[in-house]
């Protein structure tokens, strides 16, 4: 099984979802708060990852 470099980026999604769900579940007992916290955390992590990737891409194109 081989994946192109672009396809490899999709593999971050299950990782981020699992991390945010497990982390939130360890903080709260109420399901409403677990879902809410994990959703926000997921957005934060994805946002930071996408931002960092964009910055690195811009730097790479300038070099």
């Amino acid at each position: 099984m081989t994946l192109s470099p672009v396809q490899i980026y999709w593999l971050t999604i299950p990782l981020v979802v699992a991390i945010s769900l497990v982390y939130s579940a360890s903080r709260h007992e109420s399901w409403r708060r677990i879902w809410g916290h994990s959703f926000r955390l997921c957005l934060w992590i994805m946002g930071i990852l996408i931002g960092a990737t964009a910055v690195l891409l811009v730097i790479n194109t300038q070099v």
Binding site: A18, S26, R27, E29, R33
Partner: peptide, 20 residues
Amino acid sequence: AGLLNILAIYDAYEGPAYLE
């Protein structure tokens, strides 16, 4: 996966961080 299970182990031992 293993590192996340540390959080789960701690949750089983101590309970959740915040009890609403």
